[in-house]
Simulated assay, not measured.
Amino acid sequence: MRGSHARKGLAADKATLPRDARLPINRCNLPAVVLGSLTFQGYPAELTLDGVAELHADLFRRLEAAPEDKRAEVFNDYMTVRFQLEWPEQMGFTGRRKSRTKANYIKMIRGWSFDSDSREGAVLKGWVESRFGLTPRYHGEPLRDPSADAYWRYLEMRSQGLYGTNAVEAQLDLVYTYCQYELKRRHGVARHVTLYRGVNRIADHEVLENLGRGRYIVLLNNLNSFTCSRERACEFGDYILAVDVPLSKIFFYCGLLPGVLQGEDEFLAIGGAVEVSLSTL
């Protein structure tokens, strides 16, 4: 983790979040044009989802009272009871396809880890779009035109992923809020974490500006996988993309809930415009 100072040379006046990458409204304390901007990367602020902490105040009281090694268990138990994850009939389920009732927050995150362009990936990208106002830029294919077939295919996958679930997007609200709670407990005043991604070419990303000397301003997808291990990133591409990600944009990380993600030191980070560095292995 690193401190609150902005990276030297951050070109905050040279790029902003393109209009077609954001919605005019969201369910967050900051609008998408702010939280998705390059300036936010250098000077991050706390992000809170509307009403989540207030609605689930009892959870956070329990977390405060729990020892560190029991907090994940407290969270999972709360989710199971609050959303009746083991008793779908109590929530009005009357269908035959009980497999859909298992499509909870854990299944969504695991599905993403196997394939970010899967049905579960579409649900997570749709959740980011709804809560933070950042539109997805890629899901199996580029998503640039909301009227194009590619975007409608993404919407169809998202709808299929949500069908028959018990308020899975509300479950994801709590995952994000709990993640932020843990990051503050563990890292104090730190505001960024340096994350890495193996890539074969920078052209695979939306480049907003080439700053020279291996530095670029890029527009990330609205949700992205990174690793905190540079060595691990080396296994996935010929070049290493490094980015200082605001902690407030971390949705989930390996180890937050033991057993959900296996290995790779994976982080799921909310996107927007960022300055990155590209280097060889």
Rank of each mutant, 00 (worst) to 15 (best):
M1W: 04
G3V: 03
G3L: 11
S4Q: 13
S4N: 09
H5G: 11
A6W: 06
A11P: 15
D13W: 03
D13Q: 12
A15Q: 12
L17N: 04
P18D: 14
R19K: 11
P24I: 11
P24Q: 10
R27H: 14
C28H: 05
C28F: 04
N29P: 03
L30A: 09
P31E: 03
A32M: 04
V33Q: 08
L35Q: 08
F40N: 05
F40Q: 04
G42F: 07
Y43E: 13
A45R: 15
E46Q: 11
G51H: 06
V52N: 01
A53V: 10
E54Y: 03
H56T: 07
H56I: 08
A57Y: 07
R61P: 00
R62L: 14
L63C: 11
P67T: 10
D69A: 13
D69C: 05
D77E: 15
M79V: 02
M79E: 06
Q84T: 00
W87L: 03
P88K: 02
E89P: 00
M91L: 06
R96E: 13
R96Q: 12
R97V: 12
K98R: 13
R100H: 09
T101I: 05
Y105E: 00
I106D: 00
I109S: 03
R110Y: 02
S113F: 03
S113M: 14
F114D: 09
S116T: 04
A122K: 01
A122L: 03
V123R: 13
S130N: 15
S130K: 15
L134V: 13
L134I: 13
L134Q: 08
P136I: 00
Y138P: 00
H139F: 04
D145M: 06
D145C: 04
P146M: 04
S147F: 12
A148C: 12
Y154H: 10
L155Y: 07
L155D: 09
M157D: 12
Q160W: 08
Q160V: 02
L162V: 13
N166I: 02
A167G: 06
V168Y: 01
V168G: 00
A170E: 14
L172T: 11
D173V: 11
Y178L: 06
E182C: 12
L183F: 07
K184L: 10
R185H: 13
H192G: 06
L195V: 10
L195K: 07
Y196I: 06
R197D: 01
G198F: 13
G198H: 13
N200A: 05
H205T: 10
H205W: 15
E206Q: 12
E209N: 10
N210T: 03
N210A: 11
G212Y: 09
G212M: 11
R213G: 02
G214I: 10
I217V: 15
L223D: 00
F226Q: 04
F226N: 01
F226T: 01
C228Y: 05
E231K: 13
E231S: 13
C234Q: 15
C234G: 10
E235L: 11
F236E: 07
F236P: 05
A242Q: 15
V243N: 04
P246M: 08
S248R: 03
S248A: 14
L256Q: 07
G259K: 10
V260G: 05
E264N: 13
E264A: 05
E264P: 10
I270G: 01
I270P: 06
G271K: 02
A273N: 01
A273K: 00
V276K: 00
S277L: 00
L278D: 10
S279P: 03
T280H: 04
